[in-house]
Design a protein around this nucleic acid. Structure first.
Length: 122
DNA sequence: ATGATGACATCTT
DNA sequence: AAAGATGCCATCA
């Protein structure tokens, strides 16, 4: 009889090992950005395998814990400046950390993205 | 369910 | 070059 498993309402839809979702992919890409290099949100989204989702990258990063090891500060927008230029509480922190890595940044967050663009090859 | 918002990108004025 | 409008997609009220 095969010990039929009536499945007692096993609505365990959340497995212990969640598949590589968007968030995981993004975090993996950000973690690969070398020191002293910059990447845009669109670039991260592209490398993560989701070409049309740069905004969601920002959402993922917005949910990062404070003590994260991820170099989130190396992610800027394609226009070449730190996101929101101060609308965001962490903009100043990001500017400081980027400067600390040897990349010149204006007080408003303006920087030369193309000069420090990450090739994506590590 | 719909509508508004967001750590963006791209195109057009 | 800078600013406004439109597109995209997930999350929240």
């Amino acid at each position: 009889m095969k010990a039929d498993h009536p499945k007692p309402a096993a609505k365990r839809i959340q497995p212990a090992t969640p598949p590589p979702d968007f968030r995981t992919a993004v975090l993996a890409v950000v973690a690969r950005i070398p020191e002293g290099r910059l990447a845009s949100y669109g670039q991260v989204a592209l490398l993560a395998g989701y070409p049309q989702r740069p905004r969601q990258v920002g959402m993922v990063l917005s949910g990062l814990p404070e003590g994260t090891d991820l170099p989130w500060h190396r992610v800027v927008n394609s226009r070449g400046y730190v996101p929101s230029r101060g609308r965001w509480w962490g903009a100043l922190v990001q500017i400081g950390r980027i400067r600390d890595e040897g990349i010149p940044v204006d007080d408003l967050g303006n920087l030369d993205l193309e000069a420090h663009r990450w090739d994506g090859r590590g």
